[in-house]
């Protein structure tokens, strides 16, 4: 099983001939991801060195390859356009790696693309270890297993997963949801999917200061997750009080956003919070049996 992505997911790369797009296409192929083609307007009809066809439009690519998944490497100004083009072509899941897309572009996109799952932007992507990688994560850190992992950060995910893998805790799927204010998939969306995934037996939620995603996640866990242990982590607990985001924002989030509020919310949901990434496997060990490497 796994969530969102499995070994049969057919993937196209939007921006396949750009610097980052080309680099990560090769890494994903090496991992075993079924990359069936890519899109670069004006380069339709050509192929990249490793043989995958390039199309002018997402629609052409979907029609020719039957792709259901897309990964987006385009400049920030083209991010919303790329997501809408994917939606128009019937893509089911789009991973948006691009960092720096205007918040208002994303605001419009997430409210006008019903039925398409968007992961990101400004995210490292999704990996179902041993099956498929749609993202920029270093695949060798991950190992197939039964721990579901969700995180707002890219590099912190690798840090935590590295520790899990070393301790014998493989992962079913790891989702980096992205660090932007407006993102397509939230912690709660991922938790809901993990709750229904028989392969996932425990979940790690790696949050950070700011926003209220962790509080929402804690509330969801309390209500809906039974029989699967959840371990929490909050990055940035040593950060000094940050700049305020403006009066209205402060009201909406109230007392949320502080590490204290997040740790408290997790505690109330019965979720132990690790003080450091290296403590996560220790907390898991008393709740789930590791599989020796």
């Amino acid at each position: 099983m796994a969530i969102f992505v499995d070994k049969n997911s057919k993937v196209i790369v939007q921006g396949i001939t750009g610097r980052e797009g080309a680099f990560h296409t090769q890494r994903m192929l090496a991992y075993g991801t079924k990359i069936v083609g890519g899109v670069t307007p004006g380069k339709g009809g050509t192929t990249i060195e490793s043989g995958q066809p390039v199309f002018d439009t997402v629609k052409d690519a979907v029609e020719a390859t039957g792709a259901t998944h897309s990964i987006i490497f385009v400049p920030p100004f083209a991010g919303a356009d790329a997501l809408w083009e994917a939606y128009d072509a019937g893509i089911a899941l789009a991973v948006c790696i691009t960092e720096g897309i205007p918040a208002h572009d994303m605001l419009r996109v997430v409210n006008t693309t019903p039925g398409m799952r968007i992961i990101g932007g400004n995210c490292p992507g999704v990996i179902s270890p041993g099956k498929s990688l749609i993202g920029i994560m270093p695949g060798h850190v991950f190992k197939e297993g039964n721990v579901g992992m969700i995180s707002r950060s890219g590099t912190l995910t690798y840090e935590i997963v590295d520790g899990l893998t070393r301790a014998g805790f493989g992962q079913s799927t790891c989702v980096g949801i992205g660090g932007d204010p407006i993102i397509g998939t939230t912690f709660v969306d991922c938790l809901r999917a993990f709750a229904n995934d028989p392969e996932t037996e425990a979940i790690v939620v790696a949050g950070e200061i700011g926003g209220s995603d962790e509080e929402d996640a804690a509330a969801f866990i309390k209500e809906h997750i039974t029989g699967k242990p959840v371990i929490g982590f909050i990055g940035g607990r040593s950060a000094p009080k940050g700049k305020r985001l403006g009066h209205a924002g402060a009201i909406i989030s109230g007392n949320t956003g502080t590490p204290e509020s997040k740790v408290k919310a997790f505690a109330e949901a019965g979720v132990p919070v690790a003080d450091r990434p290296s403590d996560i496997p220790k907390l898991l060990a008393s709740r789930l049996k590791p599989v020796p490497a």
């Binding site: 660090g179 940035g236 003080d275």
Partner: peptide
Amino acid sequence: GAGLGMGTMDAVKNAGGGAANFLDIGG
């Protein structure tokens, strides 16, 4: 990465020291 940057500050504090700064060199 911002997350690892914050995590590194936390790690320095957990090791009994103090971080002078936060710096994320980005992707």
